[in-house]
Simulated scan of single mutants.
Amino acid sequence: MEDVLTENPPPSRFFQEDLNNFTPPSPPIPTPFLVFPTTAADLNLPLRPSLLIVAISSPALHLFHTAASKTLVGTLILPETSFAGNSVLPSPKDKSCNLYSLDGNNQTLLVSVQCPVAADRCHAVAKILISDQIVPDRVLILDSVQNRNFRGKLSRDEALVFKLETTSERKSKSVLKDLSLEYLPSASVVDGLGAALLAKCEIRNIKAVLCVAWPEFGAGVVELIKSRVLPALDLGLSFFKADGDDYVGLRQDKDPFDSDLYS
């Protein structure tokens, strides 16, 4: 007599992908969109900045949060992101994506990406930021590189910044060429919103540079961006305290992939 407890079960009549046919599909997520204040008529849309800065990494966000002169121009709304719990005044702990003018005449714009962007939404967000409403001459993206995506050994005691650039940027004489940074080593990987933005700029033939910093958190990276990247742009920006004790302990999370296995 066969043992029903140990006998292999009969094969299913359905393939695994067929089982999903009985589950109703999830409703599509609405497309991200830009919201401008009621004085949008004064913005002369589309905005045509000479430089668009997109701050994604934690050090870059913290640094530009302390910029003395910036004016809120608009907000990028991601329908999947809840804004509950955000403070009335801009805070680096808010989940938001705001558009600022750094010079008062919208020639230098800053996008402060303070909310997580899922991998499958990065291209949709990039399409909105580099769109018919925002047509930049140059783009500077400030992101970070993770240890598991870097070919080689990275030390948490040493702050580093590397760059990638579009073809039009490499052939031009843009001021972004003055960034005396090494290129990201071959076989290293950049993903997420920074990569999507650089790809969008490449497609639209826009001069763009993607700067990726290491480590992902820390006051040393703030100072490195402040001393190596921003002076080449000659923006004349002034900052409040940005590299003191208020940031030393901020989000000093240990990367779970930070081991010799991923070096």
Results as ranks from 00 to 15, higher is better:
residue 3 D to L: 13
residue 3 D to F: 12
residue 8 N to S: 14
residue 8 N to C: 14
residue 9 P to V: 15
residue 9 P to T: 15
residue 13 R to A: 15
residue 16 Q to R: 13
residue 18 D to I: 10
residue 19 L to Y: 11
residue 20 N to R: 15
residue 21 N to E: 10
residue 22 F to E: 15
residue 22 F to C: 14
residue 23 T to V: 14
residue 24 P to I: 12
residue 26 S to E: 13
residue 27 P to V: 11
residue 27 P to Y: 07
residue 28 P to R: 12
residue 29 I to C: 11
residue 30 P to C: 07
residue 31 T to I: 09
residue 33 F to D: 02
residue 36 F to V: 03
residue 37 P to I: 05
residue 37 P to S: 08
residue 39 T to K: 09
residue 40 A to P: 00
residue 41 A to W: 04
residue 41 A to G: 06
residue 42 D to L: 14
residue 44 N to Y: 05
residue 45 L to E: 10
residue 49 P to M: 08
residue 52 L to H: 01
residue 53 I to H: 00
residue 55 A to F: 02
residue 57 S to R: 08
residue 67 A to Y: 10
residue 68 A to E: 15
residue 72 L to P: 09
residue 73 V to N: 11
residue 75 T to S: 06
residue 78 L to A: 10
residue 78 L to P: 11
residue 80 E to S: 14
residue 81 T to A: 15
residue 87 S to H: 09
residue 87 S to V: 13
residue 92 P to R: 09
residue 93 K to M: 09
residue 94 D to H: 10
residue 95 K to D: 06
residue 98 N to K: 10
residue 98 N to S: 08
residue 102 L to I: 04
residue 103 D to K: 01
residue 105 N to P: 03
residue 109 L to P: 02
residue 109 L to F: 03
residue 110 L to R: 04
residue 112 S to Y: 09
residue 113 V to P: 06
residue 114 Q to C: 09
residue 115 C to F: 08
residue 115 C to A: 14
residue 117 V to T: 08
residue 117 V to S: 01
residue 119 A to R: 14
residue 120 D to G: 07
residue 121 R to S: 15
residue 122 C to Q: 09
residue 127 K to R: 15
residue 127 K to E: 14
residue 127 K to T: 14
residue 128 I to W: 04
residue 135 V to S: 00
residue 135 V to P: 00
residue 137 D to C: 08
residue 140 L to Q: 00
residue 141 I to N: 00
residue 142 L to N: 03
residue 144 S to V: 10
residue 144 S to I: 10
residue 146 Q to G: 04
residue 147 N to Q: 08
residue 147 N to M: 03
residue 147 N to A: 09
residue 149 N to K: 12
residue 153 K to E: 06
residue 156 R to M: 10
residue 156 R to P: 05
residue 163 K to G: 01
residue 168 S to C: 10
residue 170 R to C: 02
residue 170 R to V: 05
residue 175 V to W: 01
residue 177 K to R: 15
residue 178 D to G: 01
residue 179 L to S: 04
residue 181 L to M: 04
residue 182 E to W: 12
residue 183 Y to S: 13
residue 183 Y to A: 12
residue 183 Y to N: 13
residue 184 L to G: 07
residue 190 V to W: 05
residue 202 E to W: 03
residue 203 I to E: 08
residue 205 N to M: 05
residue 206 I to V: 13
residue 206 I to E: 01
residue 206 I to T: 10
residue 210 L to R: 02
residue 211 C to F: 05
residue 212 V to Q: 08
residue 212 V to A: 11
residue 216 E to N: 08
residue 218 G to A: 06
residue 220 G to Y: 07
residue 222 V to A: 03
residue 223 E to P: 07
residue 226 K to D: 07
residue 226 K to S: 13
residue 230 L to P: 04
residue 232 A to G: 11
residue 233 L to C: 06
residue 234 D to P: 05
residue 234 D to M: 01
residue 235 L to M: 04
residue 236 G to R: 09
residue 239 F to H: 06
residue 239 F to T: 04
residue 241 K to C: 02
residue 244 G to D: 15
residue 245 D to W: 15
residue 248 V to D: 01
residue 249 G to E: 07
residue 251 R to E: 15
residue 251 R to G: 08
residue 252 Q to P: 03
residue 252 Q to I: 01
residue 254 K to C: 09
residue 255 D to F: 12
residue 257 F to Y: 12
residue 258 D to A: 12
residue 259 S to W: 02
residue 260 D to Y: 08
